[in-house]
Design a protein around this nucleic acid. Structure first.
Lengths: 184, 184
DNA sequence: ACCTGAACACCGTTCAAGT
DNA sequence: ACCTGAACACCGTTCAAGT
């Protein structure tokens, strides 16, 4: 690995932005995986010295937090008038499909610190709304939400192993959970 | 962190054993957590140089694999004559209680590479046996096994967040899953 | 405010010795 | 066979500069 030194003297701008750093992180993640995404490798991609990143990002954890929440933007939320039970299944299945693109990211970061970004909030609200229309509210709804979230994230984290059969199992288990939730 | 140099010249034995290395790894894990368990910190505990460990352990991944399987030895398998449905619930609940002792270990290692040790095998066989006695065999049994395993490990990996409510939710979701499994 | 240089305190792992 | 010394190729992060 040749360490190309930045062709800039101290004080000269590199044109870095919070947005550009995030975009590069997403790109590096999909090219090199979660183990290839480090502050130093990211700096290499952007042709800056490693510490330059800290002008646009608090630290690695905060960066990955944002990358993860960006990922959740792709999840399809069912339209307002959709059938609640079917909508819940669609929403969780879409979340699963989105997350299995980066299972390692899910297991190492989502599992260890959770998602608290805007998109995560939006999905949580959507699930809660669907549950309410299915007749589940209050404490049981919060419990159902937790079960659905942990179940889906857990399966997504397992994805690198045996994708094919795992997705089928995810679907079967999800049906059992939803049957239990709406009939309680 | 003072780096105490090993008081040994090259060629002198330190009395290391595979068993002693593993025991020290378990101890260091429960004292310093998964982030505090490194090959170098482990070597420090054992008063040897870092590379000495590689005479007794293939690498860090293999070491943690064994530590994880050791952990699973604590899981209580229900007696042979137990009620299948109740036995399945007990077995998964015991697995959950065992794993939440080290949620980070679960999320980083169990999720990313799975468990293939002797104890993991033993638990898988136990679940399969209980499923068979509950009338579930063949492909549906393998699917049920996958769902139960991923569900339980997923919840265990989430444990560092809100322990109290999470355990209740784990139980509720587990009941829903088992109801779906035995009635299919 | 945004960047570099240099440094701090780490990693996992390998290779060539020494007994 | 089991260990040390030294090294390789990395980490995340901080602090003092420079413009």
């Amino acid at each position: 690995m040749t360490t190309v030194p930045p062709a800039r003297s101290p004080g000269q701008r590199a044109g870095l932005t919070h947005e550009r750093v995030l975009a590069a992180a997403r790109e590096l993640l999909s090219e090199a995986g979660v183990d290839g995404l480090s502050m130093r490798s990211l700096a290499r991609c952007l042709q800056v010295s490693p510490n330059a990143l800290y002008s646009h990002v608090e630290n690695k954890l905060a960066l990955i937090d944002e990358v993860l929440d960006d990922l959740l933007a792709e999840v399809e939320v069912p339209p307002a008038g959709a059938d609640p039970a079917a909508g819940l299944h669609q929403l969780m299945a879409s979340t699963y499909r989105t997350l299995i693109a980066h299972p390692e990211l899910v297991s190492v970061y989502l599992m260890r610190q959770g998602a608290r970004g805007a998109n995560a909030q939006r999905l949580g609200d959507a699930v809660t709304g669907l549950l309410a229309r299915a007749g589940v509210a209050g404490a049981p709804a919060r419990e159902a939400l937790r079960v659905l979230i942990v179940y889906t994230i857990g399966f997504a984290a397992f994805a690198p192993r045996d994708d094919r059969e795992l997705t089928g199992s995810f679907d079967a288990g999800l049906r059992w959970l939803l049957a239990g939730i709406v009939s309680s």
